[in-house]
């Protein structure tokens, strides 16, 4: 008899948990640290749903996972180059703009720069930014405010560059005055020599934990995304940090929200995108990331001063899809990584 009671309890537990799972779910595949939890919780509460949030570290990783059969996600956040690849490969669903009225809040000057999807048929801009350089001014007082800081031998072993060829070779190309999307072999060879000069002085190529290393005082100069650096810092250490974007330009990105083709929750996905671009919600995100707002209405209500402004990005260039020329980049990057 006792056994039956136990069985009943176990079964009812299953049934109850089944009820809970009956709630609709939105599967989001996004960069780490890219949406504050409060925003997700707000969405869950308002739309009586559950958000499942998985993270990736790079566009390539996201793309490879989706390519290798990672299905079940509703929304992901590719940067421009990958948004255009995914649109061309037919991996994303068309956006029904009628369901996203808040699109009107997005800065038109930015939309005008999008070449691959000019009228937001498939991708809705989320955040715009760049990978600059963070410097710990407690240890370093005098330094050039561009990538030539990586040539300074007195900071040897205290600096990191991103483990991302588009960023690093792109910055080298920009420092030589070339386009960050160059596919000219001699320009790329020159950029390689520049990166090799930087490589001599850096501790490692790192995209995963430079923020933590910077916060603990290990790294004094890191190349990376502002939010990854600042979210690791506390009130006390933040005053010693200077974040700059080289004046001679570099790469920049526009990350967009796309609804994946095999999404099972298309309507909820639209509601999510619309929710993100609500001014008060977007302001929360911009404040959390301390990045410039691309949502015009939200600019009026943000509380934090962003790490840099959209004007600071005037000389920067969007990364574009390189097509099959990517193989040349791969080759050069491999040479950089393995050469001593």
């Amino acid at each position: 008899m006792k056994k039956n009671v136990l069985l009943f309890m176990v079964l009812s537990a299953f049934i109850l948990s089944g009820c809970k799972d009956g709630k609709s779910k939105l599967y989001i595949f996004n960069w780490s640290y890219y949406i504050p939890d409060t925003v997700l919780e707000g969405f869950e509460e308002e739309f009586n749903t559950k958000v499942v949030y998985d993270v990736f570290e790079s566009n390539e990783e996201m793309f490879a996972k989706l390519r290798a059969g990672g299905t079940g996600y509703d929304i992901t956040f590719p940067s421009g180059d990958y948004a255009s690849i995914m649109i061309n490969e037919g991996m994303v669903a068309k956006v029904n703009r009628d369901l996203v009225p808040n699109l009107k809040n997005i800065d038109e000057n930015i939309i005008r720069k999008i070449k691959y999807d000019p009228i937001m048929d498939y991708s809705i801009p989320y955040m715009m930014g760049t990978a600059g350089v963070a410097v710990n001014t407690k240890f370093i007082k005098d330094f050039p405010k561009d990538f030539s800081i990586f040539e300074r031998e007195d900071f040897k072993g205290r600096m990191t560059l991103l483990d991302d060829m588009r960023e690093v070779i792109g910055s080298a190309l920009a420092s030589l005055g070339y386009s960050v999307n160059s596919v000219n072999e001699s320009e790329l060879r020159q950029a390689k020599e520049v990166v090799l000069k930087w490589k001599k002085n850096i501790l490692k190529f790192d995209s995963a934990s430079f923020g933590k290393g910077f916060a603990s005082g290990e790294f004094w100069v890191v190349n990376g995304y502002a939010e990854n650096v600042f979210l690791e810092l506390d009130e006390d250490t933040i005053k010693d940090v200077l974040y700059f974007i080289p004046k001679n330009g570099g790469t920049m990105y526009l990350d967009s929200m796309v609804i994946l083709k095999d999404s099972k929750n298309v309507e909820l996905a639209h509601q999510f995108i619309n929710y993100i671009h609500r001014p008060e919600v977007y302001a929360q995100i911009a404040d959390y990331l301390m990045l410039p707002s691309i949502n015009v209405e939200a600019r009026k209500i943000v509380k934090e001063i962003p790490t840099y402004t959209i004007e600071d990005l005037a000389n920067n260039e969007f990364k574009e899809d390189l097509g099959s020329n990517i193989e040349l980049w791969d080759k050069i990057w491999q040479e950089i990584r393995v050469q001593n």
Partner: peptide, 11 residues
């Protein structure tokens, strides 16, 4: 190197 070929260069 294997992870890089799989994830980044996608070869």
């Amino acid at each position: 190197l294997i992870a890089r070929e799989l994830k980044v260069t996608m070869n």
